[in-house]
Amino acid sequence: MSSTLIINAKVVNEGEVRETDVRIKGQRIEQIAPNLSVLPNEQVIDAQGAYLMPGMIDDQVHFREPGLTHKARLRLSP
């Protein structure tokens, strides 16, 4: 299973913002803590200065009324 470590992120969680690291295994968050050690063969992403919001969704897409799928499509001008 692939593993990714995001370091130095400003994590927004439970109403707080704190600089910490986030480990993701597969498609799930496994650990949120400062100064996590890099595991063998783990991809590392340095998010210095960036905000990370675990579990955020786009409510404009996911909470539409059924049958309004045309609103979610990208329309290109000729």
Rank of each mutant, 00 (worst) to 15 (best):
residue 1 M to I: 11
residue 2 S to P: 14
residue 2 S to T: 09
residue 3 S to L: 10
residue 4 T to F: 04
residue 6 I to F: 07
residue 9 A to E: 08
residue 9 A to K: 05
residue 10 K to Y: 01
residue 10 K to A: 11
residue 10 K to P: 01
residue 10 K to N: 15
residue 11 V to D: 00
residue 11 V to Y: 02
residue 12 V to F: 01
residue 12 V to D: 00
residue 13 N to A: 03
residue 13 N to E: 06
residue 13 N to Q: 13
residue 14 E to G: 02
residue 16 E to G: 00
residue 17 V to K: 01
residue 19 E to P: 01
residue 19 E to A: 07
residue 20 T to E: 01
residue 20 T to F: 02
residue 21 D to H: 13
residue 22 V to Y: 05
residue 23 R to T: 07
residue 24 I to Y: 00
residue 30 E to T: 07
residue 30 E to M: 06
residue 31 Q to T: 15
residue 31 Q to H: 09
residue 31 Q to R: 15
residue 32 I to N: 03
residue 34 P to Q: 09
residue 34 P to V: 08
residue 36 L to W: 10
residue 36 L to P: 07
residue 37 S to A: 15
residue 38 V to A: 12
residue 39 L to T: 04
residue 40 P to I: 10
residue 40 P to V: 12
residue 40 P to H: 10
residue 41 N to G: 12
residue 41 N to Q: 15
residue 43 Q to C: 02
residue 44 V to Y: 09
residue 44 V to A: 07
residue 45 I to G: 03
residue 45 I to V: 15
residue 45 I to M: 06
residue 45 I to A: 05
residue 47 A to H: 07
residue 47 A to F: 07
residue 48 Q to W: 04
residue 51 Y to M: 07
residue 53 M to K: 02
residue 54 P to H: 04
residue 55 G to L: 06
residue 56 M to G: 00
residue 56 M to R: 09
residue 56 M to L: 15
residue 57 I to C: 08
residue 59 D to Y: 11
residue 60 Q to K: 09
residue 60 Q to V: 03
residue 60 Q to G: 14
residue 62 H to K: 11
residue 64 R to V: 06
residue 64 R to K: 10
residue 64 R to L: 08
residue 65 E to C: 06
residue 65 E to W: 05
residue 66 P to G: 08
residue 68 L to F: 04
residue 68 L to T: 05
residue 70 H to G: 03
residue 70 H to W: 10
residue 70 H to I: 08
residue 71 K to T: 09
residue 71 K to A: 10
residue 71 K to D: 05
residue 72 A to Q: 08
residue 72 A to R: 07
residue 75 R to K: 14
residue 75 R to M: 12
residue 76 L to H: 11
residue 78 P to D: 14
